[in-house]
Design a protein around this nucleic acid. Structure first.
Lengths: 148, 148
DNA sequence: AGTATTTATCATATTTTCATGAGAAACACA
DNA sequence: TGTGTTTCTCATGAAAATATGATAAATACT
């Protein structure tokens, strides 16, 4: 559904949201904790920083942190730099133009689902995932630091 | 959503369903009509033939044709050889195991959508797409030979 | 100032996907 | 039997996604 890179982005941002208190978190730490390739993650997070989603700082006590409140950060914003979630690639049969006016054979049956997927990414926030995590873990659960 | 190869398979099978009458259709014809790479499509259709979805015949008057009635041929069967539509890749965060018992942070919000997508491919048949095409074209439409 | 730490950037390697080309095998038909 | 047509199969190539490694630039701390 989403690329490996988009998945890294999602998991890393969720991790940052769960470690918001205190200093920024280094790529090293995130990559170790989430078992991701360090330098590749570095590039991925750098792009999110350029998009204004993360803030980055170099040097000692540097690292990455959220630049947007987690309750206003949608999954769409996180994944969109790496995966084309709407527009092209919406048409199941790959047509450049596919609309109600110029539908492909699958359009009418597919568009509702495609729309739901799009809406999911646009309307689900990082906070929603954290809330879901905490709810799912139950009232007698652990420390809640295992996002994905 | 699906790979280029899966998309080729889908469009080619739909094409075959629309040209069921008479002789099998050659790869050359399909590739030309649908603007697909000929030899690559050949391999793709060959795999579908091995799966029993298509029948192939060599030599003059040879080519490919459906081996399964189009009203009993699901999109899932056509795409599944090329794309992993369920199982792995169901979890948005890429976990090898992600279930109601061991949910990732996105599981409860995502699983319904993932299930709907899965159901779409499993329950939509080639015939459904053809019917949709004809309905969409309206009563005063052309010859209905442009599937996708 | 000097040093260690960390991101930023560049070059390169690996893997997967997509695509091309040539010849072998099977077949219809004359 | 021969000829042309078509799938089948293998070898190769190109492009994109994923990953690694080395170095430069910035920063905190002593």
């Amino acid at each position: 559904m989403i690329s490996q890179t988009g998945e890294y982005a999602l998991r890393a941002v969720l991790y940052l949201a769960l470690h918001q208190e205190g200093d920024p978190v280094s790529v090293e730490t995130i990559a170790d904790d989430l078992s991701m390739p360090r330098n590749y993650l570095s590039k991925t997070l750098h792009l999110l920083a350029k998009r204004g989603i993360l803030a980055s700082a170099r040097g000692p006590r540097g690292g990455f942190e959220l630049a947007v409140p987690s309750d206003r950060l949608s999954l769409f914003e996180i994944v969109e730099p790496f995966d084309d979630l709407e527009g092209r690639g919406q048409c199941l049969l790959g047509r450049p133009e596919c609309s109600d006016q110029t539908p492909c054979a699958a359009h009418h049956r597919w568009k509702d689902l495609a729309q739901r997927v799009s809406t999911f990414f646009r309307e689900t926030t990082v906070d929603d995932l954290i809330a879901e995590m905490n709810a799912g873990a139950g009232p007698a659960a652990g420390n809640g630091s295992e996002p994905g």
